[in-house]
Nucleic acid binder design. Structure first.
Lengths: 136, 136
DNA sequence: TGTATCTTTGTATAATTGTATCATTGTATC
DNA sequence: GATACAATGATACAATTATACAAAGATACA
């Protein structure tokens, strides 16, 4: 769970080379990753809004949004409509496969338990899972 | 000395996942419905004020107000300006059943989300459920 | 009691922020 | 040139937040 609130709005140091073969979107992605591994961006930090950064870089805000989305999909940041974009906590060290299996077992049991308390059979609970998967 | 306006401070157990595709407003609505069908909220109970819950969840109080309004419109709660928000009488059986189905949906999605965070695909998560059922 | 006043509570509306979709631009290939 | 594709921009939209407001409760004082 991430706890985020607007305390400080970040200004970040990004330089775009418009003559580069590297697309602007890529440059943004790479430079934010660079700021992150260098420790200049920390978990919980709020990035500039797509419009603010776009104005600063003199590009369209959709280009910034595209870069943010890529970073979001790789789990580096969290973009939240109406709220802003934030650096995520770094993923914890990899659990062993066995440990993950056990965790899955625990949460699966919990799901069936909760469904049971709501009055649903195991079969109905399983069907609901299938339904959700089918609708995605 | 200044006296407290209310001698009971209502707290409810709601967890917001800012990374979820599900909007925060929706998450609040669903989780309050879940608390209701689970019996953790009873008719007459006062919900936290929009500002109190918003502060706790680290969101804007208008987002809570929006969720409360949705629940109000579906007849689950009663919000009264200047007074607060209260759980209404238990919904009739057919509506209760509807709410329970929605609640099942909520916990099913939560299970898939958690499994995904552990690195399991939806299919693997579903198989784990089947495995548990088969071993009973 | 009654009333003035402040506090608490929800409401209304505009502003902010990211998203979705299509249009435009540039470039490579033929 | 023609066509296809990738990158970027423009526009409309959805979700959340900010600000100002209205209704009801609490308190003080006559």
């Amino acid at each position: 769970m991430i706890q985020l609130y607007k305390d400080t709005i970040m200004t970040i140091n990004i330089q775009i080379d418009f003559r580069s073969d590297n697309p602007v979107t890529n440059q943004i992605v790479e430079q934010i990753q660079h700021l992150l591994v260098n420790g200049e961006l920390k978990p919980g930090d709020q990035l500039p809004t797509v419009r603010a950064l776009a104005t600063e870089l003199r590009i369209n805000f959709n280009t910034v949004a595209r870069a943010y989305r890529i970073l979001d999909e790789t789990g580096v940041i969290s973009t939240q409509q109406g709220r802003g974009t934030y650096i995520l906590e770094q993923p914890p060290p990899e659990k062993s496969h066995q440990l993950k299996k056990e965790s899955l077992n625990v949460i699966a049991r919990r799901y069936l338990d909760e469904a049971s308390r709501l009055g649903f059979s195991n079969t109905e609970a399983a069907e609901q899972i299938q339904l959700l998967i089918a609708n995605h």
